[in-house]
């Protein structure tokens, strides 16, 4: 009932309109994100007093996640991705407006995840030196 497809921005060929909010509330995501090591990493980014599970299942998070996927679909997220220190492959995928490409780039680059984080740290140190 929400909206009539006509008012949506024309989808890029091959791209899908993904409801990221419901994708990320799947039980598999909840259990993965709640695993101790991952929960520790996510903890600083949670709303005060919420845990990983309540966050993933909250309508406010779902709304933010949907906003994220429609922003990716609009092809505007490239610069934001690089701001968050994601590899250039991810931001160029984001520039195409195809979320599948973004996810793929995220997975491809994360196999060498160790080096990415090191590079990020290097970048951070460098920017500190610059100041």
């Amino acid at each position: 009932p929400e909206g009539n497809g006509a008012s949506r921005t024309a989808p890029v060929a091959g791209a899908v309109n993904v409801d990221l909010g419901s994708v990320l509330s799947a039980s598999d995501v909840v259990s993965t994100a709640s695993a101790p090591e991952n929960a520790v990493r996510l903890a600083p980014h949670l709303p005060a007093q919420d845990d990983v599970r309540t966050t993933l299942l909250s309508p406010q998070f779902a709304q933010a996640a949907n906003q994220f996927s429609s922003a990716v679909g609009s092809g505007q997220m490239g610069p934001v991705m690089s701001q968050f220190g994601l590899p250039s492959e991810v931001s160029s995928a984001a520039n195409t407006g195809n979320i599948e490409a973004v996810f793929k780039a995220l997975e491809d680059t994360s196999s060498s995840s160790g080096t990415t984080t090191k590079e990020d740290d290097k970048k951070k140190d460098k920017s500190k030196d610059d100041q």
Binding site: L24, A26, V29, T32, H45, L46, P47, S58, A65, F103
Partner: peptide, 29 residues
């Protein structure tokens, strides 16, 4: 209201990275 006012961006990015590392993103999609 705390949730409404929260900036979820860093959480989403970290979550996607975690899921990517465990190769769970593409199956979810």
């Amino acid at each position: 209201l705390v949730r409404r006012r929260h900036n979820y961006m860093p959480f989403i990015i970290n979550l996607l990275q975690i899921l990517a590392k465990e190769k769970k993103l593409m199956p979810l999609l």
